[in-house]
Write a protein that binds this DNA or RNA. Sequence first.
DNA 1: TAGTTATAGGTGTTAGTTGCACTTATTTCA
DNA 2: TGAAATAAGTGCAACTAACACCTATAACTA
Lengths: 136, 136
Amino acid sequence: MRKRFCPRHGKDYPCSCGMGNLYRFVEPVVLLLLKMKGRSYGYDLAADLEGHALTDTTIEKGVLYRTLRRLEMNGNVKSEWEAEGRGPARRIYRLTKQGEEHLDEWAAVLEHLSKSMSRFVRDARKPAAGKAKPAR
Amino acid sequence: MRKRFCPRHGKDYPCSCGMGNLYRFVEPVVLLLLKMKGRSYGYDLAADLEGHALTDTTIEKGVLYRTLRRLEMNGNVKSEWEAEGRGPARRIYRLTKQGEEHLDEWAAVLEHLSKSMSRFVRDARKPAAGKAKPAR
DNA sequence: TAGTTATAGGTGTTAGTTGCACTTATTTCA
DNA sequence: TGAAATAAGTGCAACTAACACCTATAACTA
């Protein structure tokens, strides 16, 4: 049984605190990059993803390409092949109107999540309540 | 093919922006609650989870119980049956020393994630760069 | 006292997701 | 001409999520 490697706890420890490449967190980053760049393609996005990812881990190419396809299926981006220029042909993606709205939704979701998390961190660092007298 | 329901986009939209009950986000909340309460059990934790969850969605019982078992397998909590008192016997959980450390690690992970997310939100709300003159 | 509700702790199943390795193809450069 | 860089994927086993379902005890209530 293949085990996932956790950089914090080593192998054979079935935690997920590193949080991997959760495609649900790759999606908004792709949307943001497309907004900032105007147009881009998989191979190019892969490089920039490192700098903008929400998690630490390196982004997995497979997740990226599948995310782009799914975004297109859902109407959030559109693509066209571009053969001109150097190297192999590129599939160029752009945000659609709906994609921009979807990014806005993501921003709202992540803003809320960010606040929940920072509240969590504050609570987690408080000393445990009423430990002076043992509870039983 | 059973489809997940997304409260934001309805059924048949394979997004995950609601983010469901991601067990990886249930784990730290359980650790925090156990730290705050000193001792607790599944049914009791289930009630408090709502108020402390990182995501909005209601917490799924199955995830909670399985999370508790996994935490115990990993040595982060320990449990004992308690038959006294009213109602059916309860499996009482407590944090171990290791569990407290694990919570601290989670706090560090989530602090980082929280910051990444709020940076993301800031960027996402900036107007798109250089859209005045069309890029091509 | 029988039936219902509340408390308590789970399991089973299947669809969906992830990680990682692998594949294919074109172009550039030494 | 052979290696490296660019580009876009696919295959698959292991893992995760959602939701329904199951078991049992205790308390309440008609």
